[in-house]
């Protein structure tokens, strides 16, 4: 479904990605772990071209999207949902409008169709009683669940999660991970950058360990967590696991 080929990304002089190859199949859940500054988020942001790779190709459903013009890229982005560390709900819109805006303005759904979808998604996220609340009136966990509903409302083929729990208070992490688990059970294709190792072990089909702009090692959760082969993986895990 997604194939990244030899992705390089430079910011000014700093090379953040140094030739990354990654394939994600339909229905697969891939979790990317690694120390800060490893290039995990940048890699994820290259998938929907929020970040333009300096070189390399991003193939989505067999088509190289790095060669597309702006309009075509917008059409691809409709099909790739994204959830951000800093949540980024639209502050001036209430919950319902946050979720219905893109289906109405981008997909051209009618207001009532979009609200129908939004209502059922928000119910699933457990925030059906906050439809008319504004983001500032919600807790961090509620905000992130609305953001997930907002991405899902476009009925994407794949979901990208960029450290979705890193900015949350500890007691709100589980409610967000729970809805993500339920997406996994539905068979959603997902690429997740996270520091929640317990969660990663539980939901991932494949773990990618990144460091210093490279993929150092990849494998099943069992292989990576119980039997890592690379020294850098061992060092990283020994630092973060009790």
């Amino acid at each position: 479904m997604i194939r990244l080929e030899k992705i390089y990304k430079k910011f000014e002089r700093l090379e953040v990605l140094k030739g990354v190859d990654l394939v994600v199949e339909k229905g697969e859940v891939v979790v990317i772990i690694g120390p800060s500054g490893a290039g995990k988020s940048t890699l994820l942001r290259c998938v929907n071209l929020l970040e333009r790779p300096t070189s390399g190709r991003v193939i989505f459903e067999g088509i190289d999207i790095t060669r597309m013009d702006g309009r075509e890229i917008d059409r691809v982005r409709e099909r790739i949902g994204m959830v951000f560390q800093h949540i980024n709900l639209f502050n001036h819109l209430n919950v319902l409008d946050n979720v219905t805006l893109a289906p109405v303005k981008v997909k051209g759904l009618s207001r009532s169709e979009a609200e129908h979808i939004a209502n059922s998604l928000l119910a699933r996220m457990g925030i059906e009683d906050k439809l008319y609340a504004y983001p500032s009136q919600l807790s961090g966990g509620q905000r992130q669940r609305v953001a997930i509903a907002r991405a899902l409302a476009m009925q994407p083929d794949i979901m990208l999660f960029d450290e979705p729990t890193s900015a949350l208070d500890p007691e709100m992490i589980k409610e967000v991970l729970d809805v993500m688990s339920s997406l996994v059970k539905d068979g959603m294709t997902m690429i997740i950058v996270t520091h929640e190792m317990g969660f990663a072990r539980e939901v991932a089909d494949r773990i990618i360990f990144m460091d210093n702009g490279y993929i150092v090692e990849e494998g099943s959760p069992k292989e990576i967590f119980s039997n890592p082969k690379e020294e850098r993986t061992v060092m990283f895990l020994s630092k973060i696991l009790y």
């Binding site: 929907n48 982005r77 303005k105």
Partner: peptide, 9 residues
């Protein structure tokens, strides 16, 4: 970024 990720121009 959030708006663009949803496919808005």
């Amino acid at each position: 970024e959030a708006a663009r990720s949803l496919g808005l121009s």
